[in-house]
Design a protein around this nucleic acid. Sequence first.
DNA 1: AGGTTTTTCTCGACAGTCGAGAAAATAAAT
DNA 2: ATTTATTTTCTCGACTGTCGAGAAAAACCT
Lengths: 406, 406
Amino acid sequence: MLTKSSTELVRQQNSVLVLSALRRGGAASHTELSTRTGLASATVSAITADLERAGVLEKSEQQALGGRGRPRVLFSQRRDCGYLIAVRISSDTVQYSLVDYSGRLMDRFEEPRNHGAGGADAFPGEIKDALSRLVARSHIDKDAVLAISISSKGTVDAMNPTLLWSPLFGGRQFDFGKLLAPEWRAKVSLNNETLLVAQALALKADKVPESKFQALAALSLGHSIGLGIARKNRQGEIEATAPNFGHMLNSAQGGLCRCGSYGCIEASAGFYGILRSAFQVPPDTIPAKFVPLAEMDKIAASARQGNRMAEYAFRQAGVALGNGLSRLMSFYERMPVHITGPGTRYFDLLRRGIEEGLVQSHEVRLQGMPQISVNLEEQRLVFEGHLDRALTDADYDIVATKVSSS
Amino acid sequence: MLTKSSTELVRQQNSVLVLSALRRGGAASHTELSTRTGLASATVSAITADLERAGVLEKSEQQALGGRGRPRVLFSQRRDCGYLIAVRISSDTVQYSLVDYSGRLMDRFEEPRNHGAGGADAFPGEIKDALSRLVARSHIDKDAVLAISISSKGTVDAMNPTLLWSPLFGGRQFDFGKLLAPEWRAKVSLNNETLLVAQALALKADKVPESKFQALAALSLGHSIGLGIARKNRQGEIEATAPNFGHMLNSAQGGLCRCGSYGCIEASAGFYGILRSAFQVPPDTIPAKFVPLAEMDKIAASARQGNRMAEYAFRQAGVALGNGLSRLMSFYERMPVHITGPGTRYFDLLRRGIEEGLVQSHEVRLQGMPQISVNLEEQRLVFEGHLDRALTDADYDIVATKVSSS
DNA sequence: AGGTTTTTCTCGACAGTCGAGAAAATAAAT
DNA sequence: ATTTATTTTCTCGACTGTCGAGAAAAACCT
């Protein structure tokens, strides 16, 4: 069903447009906002006046730099308009970041995750505590937090927001919405970690002028395998998704996976899968809970020195990844792949297998090999993805609530 | 990039809304349009007046049926506002349908396709001839044709519109846009056949009140395998895509496919793949060009009588399909599957294999088996898909051009 | 013929965008 | 010190669009 439009909606959309121009390009003057957004100067006036009245924008004076004529007055987000908390759940720690409305990092700390028995039971409580401490440290009121953006590996129900399955907690589900609902007024969102990576990469790629960005995939290699896809839709927005790539069926003859199935990509290409085949452990052995990086480095070193089984282990991992990517291209379209995560350090060993696996796709055979690149800044990308998503969401909310009621 | 909005765009969007309400619900009175669209009565007045002036709508009098009060005046599309041609390219014939703006079928004929040598060379000319004859028979001017909607099996570049690879012509490409550009002013579109099936099914599913339709897949079984996906996006529109499912990699150990690769789904589940494994022909044999249905029926009959190899051939075809569908669910989400095409008559033999293949997916294991149903009306669905897509497109075009200029 | 009922049509209020030009604020020139 | 040039911001009127309410129209009923 299409939906009706109205003049008020026009104002909303254009207000969001102004806010997003400010996000992407930084503080800007009246006239620059006009050129960035394509709106008439008079319209920008009206909108900025509204937003200023609502306490969202402020005029940051100064900047007497050169030029004659009337000095420009820069608009920027009011930092105290609201706050955002980004929570990054990783295998051994949880990182909490407090960010103000302008996107500036205010505070950050990490807490170790309790792996022992009862760790999962204590987890919700730990999160609630840490969140409370985070705002207390900066003397911020809980109700001033607009959004809490959580990321984890695993599959996620973004609507609810519930963690459905994760490498950390298995099938144990957490409904973060319910968990934080009474105490926090903030909008709680939960996203797969690699989805955020893809989002951040797409944002960057789309900023480049003349880029004609269409789509990309982010592939995170580690103990588990994550995939994020970011594509531009017809309206020109970036839409990111995170399919259950690591536990997609690779080969019916494949080994046993942590998830209990046989033949998942992860069972071949996750660290424990590589370990298993390097040491010729029977493929139906129950996978190791955790493989230290040092262990992987040893296998890689011996592969680089010509050890056949170690070489083969990385090779077959690469083929599993390449086959998975080839299916990705079949389902969507050919797109560049960005590889991140701790597994990137073995990319030299994986590369040939990946290409071998990719070339089996009809798409790749018709249109050529996609571009594959390595990105070592996974952590930063995840954080940028958090910011972009949550702040953009917050902009929409603010426009919908604060401004209309004035 | 988001884009700016304006009051004129509001009118455009609402005009499209009115036209689409008319498409879906049939001729309607003033007040009914108002309730269907949610627009105020006065707004409907203004819009219908515009559209009437532009020659798009007309008041269809009559309908004195019962009731007191002022009789309602029904609005409906002016049939002569424009015409649409749907071209359905199938393996042995090409079907041409002429439809008026209201969606009523005016004329239809089929032409056999020349399979012999030089058939592909003659094909463009044949199409041009047939299109000219179609409009001549109904005494319609070529310039009155708003859209030519073409469908074929195979992969398609929808933007151009170019047939990139098809089971009928292999890698031989046809750019229908260029082919028809000088002679026809109509907008030429090209879509995968099963995409249209999915679109039509989704349209139907979405019409049911309280359906909460989210997504579905259409799987067409025959000599080749087609998949269409239709999903509702955030704006509530139905978006359909047709991945290259038949030639997606199923198993690296799979047989030789028509496309030249090894291990495509089609190489196991297409008719020639089933035939090959039923007769234990080596899997690297070059596939049969065409398998008559009678031949398939024989294999099926012997499978139903307990012949092991025949049974196994269908079983492994089903597993290949099920595995492919399981990957579909991994990449997107769990969604119901509608099976169409000539292969549906062997569904009893395929079913167990499909379910066996599906259950290997993490998604299915977590959320349960998706609903699988058989639909025998593939032809009609393709035609409905043609109509829905092309007429909706035409509505957008008309609103953007005719109305604004008045 | 007059009342009832239902639908269609019309009018004024309100919200929004746009272009043009006035007003403001500064640097350079005189 | 005053004027001029330049650049930016602000304001005004015209235009387009939606909406709600009520008037007008066109049938049926008594």
